Computed example of a mutant assay.
Amino acid sequence: MSSALTDLFPRPIVQAPMAGGVSVPRLAAAVSEAGGLGFLAAGYKTADGMYQEIKQLRGLTSRPFGVNLFMPQPEYPGASTGSTGAAGAAHPSAAAVEVYANQLAGEAAWYDTELGDPDSGRDDGYDAKLAVLLDNPVPVVSFHFGCPTPEVLASLVAKGTLTLVSVTTADEALAVERAGADAVIVQGVEAGGHQGTHRDDPERDGAGIGLLSLVAQVREAVSLPVVAAGGIMRGSQIAAVLAAGACAAQLGTAFLVTPESGANALHKQAMTNPLFVRTELTRAFSGRPARGLVNRFMREHGPYAPVAYPQVHHLTSGLRKAAAKAGDPQGMALWAGQGHRLARELPAGQLVEVLATELASARAALSGFPDGSAGGGDR
């Protein structure tokens, strides 16, 4: 399925924007130079920090790339204008965050650090980042944790920017289509990192949909191009999602272990370390469902983490940094998709080449003929 998006890059491979210092300019540049679509992650950065990375990336490649933004979040789930309810009473989630902070006091003492301020901000500098991207347009902008207003999407389109929005259900895809985005990133439950749900509903915890089923549902619901994301590590899997109707595949964990990735060395090593055998969705580190390798912190605190993003993210930020500094992966957020055991420590550009070769082989095998032709003669 051709689209204005895939016309930008010759290979249907998108490098996922991984926040927290993983998707650095050198990684995005290497992917784009190899014919994929590299992405910068603006999440948790200042507007100026994002701008400086864009400038650096443009110095490394002249090929198209993307920038990902986090959508602003309500102060607490269910809150409309503030964290207080009737008679000035604290919102229940605020109290839950305080209880969680008390639970984490032992972690802070263990790592000799302070807990963060849960009220450090919830909009991630969204308006300032949008202003930068309108003043200095980039080829592609994607959004996570919700859908921008039609006015925001139209303003980016007017600057020549293609817009993508992450979705986890067909209903979310319909809302994105109505808002006027150019494409959707369909994120299956297999994906590492944060689920891009538009509304954080605790009743949906663990109820995500597998990628191939979700791609089919979204393709029947909307006419927008689909980028498939979630657990993809091999070219054969890319072939599968393309056959299901996607125009490209987005891979995160596969690129996390590359030399160009900015991920912590302990995080990279954990992907294939036999000590970490499985992943789970957890709220332990951020207050929002995110898939990572199961470690001590997740086991001990996941069951008690409140529904409060980004408050819990701010609360645990110092703990995660201190654990990394101490060389302790058991206290780090080791985000990873379900395919993490298939990670390959290849340079990013070489990985794109290998994936493209595997994709071509898978397509040829699906056709039944080595050269990919339809063939003829007796069956």
Rank of each mutant, 00 (worst) to 15 (best):
K55P: 01
A105N: 09
A183M: 01
E358T: 06
L57N: 05
V189M: 06
G292T: 01
A181L: 08
P12M: 01
Q311H: 12
S223W: 07
P92W: 02
Y111G: 11
A29K: 10
T316Y: 05
P64K: 07
V152W: 05
A333K: 07
Y44N: 11
E177S: 12
I238A: 04
G21Q: 02
G125M: 07
L256T: 15
Y304L: 15
V141D: 00
P12F: 03
S32M: 04
A254G: 02
G208S: 00
G208Y: 00
L153D: 11
W335S: 03
A374L: 13
L266H: 14
G245K: 10
E300Y: 11
T113E: 12
Q103N: 14
L359I: 02
G196F: 00
Q350I: 14
S236P: 07
A158P: 03
G43Q: 10
H144Y: 05
D201F: 07
G331P: 04
E260H: 05
L281W: 07
V307P: 10
D171T: 13
P150E: 10
A79Y: 00
A175E: 11
V294I: 10
S236H: 14
W335M: 03
G35M: 07
T282S: 14
A243C: 02
R204H: 11
P274D: 02
S62Y: 08
S120H: 12
N68L: 06
E260V: 04
L266T: 09
A326D: 09
E260L: 08
D123S: 14
V222H: 04
P72W: 06
A207W: 05
T197H: 09
P92F: 03
M50L: 12
G231P: 04
V141C: 00
V227N: 08
L355W: 09
A109K: 15
D117Q: 12
M298W: 09
C247S: 15
G372A: 02
G85N: 03
S166D: 08
G337Y: 00
E300T: 15
A290R: 02
L366D: 13
G376F: 12
G85W: 06
G121M: 11
D135Q: 11
T258H: 10
S83G: 13
G192K: 00
L342E: 12
R283L: 09
A94V: 11
V152E: 09
A94Q: 09
R63C: 04
I54P: 02
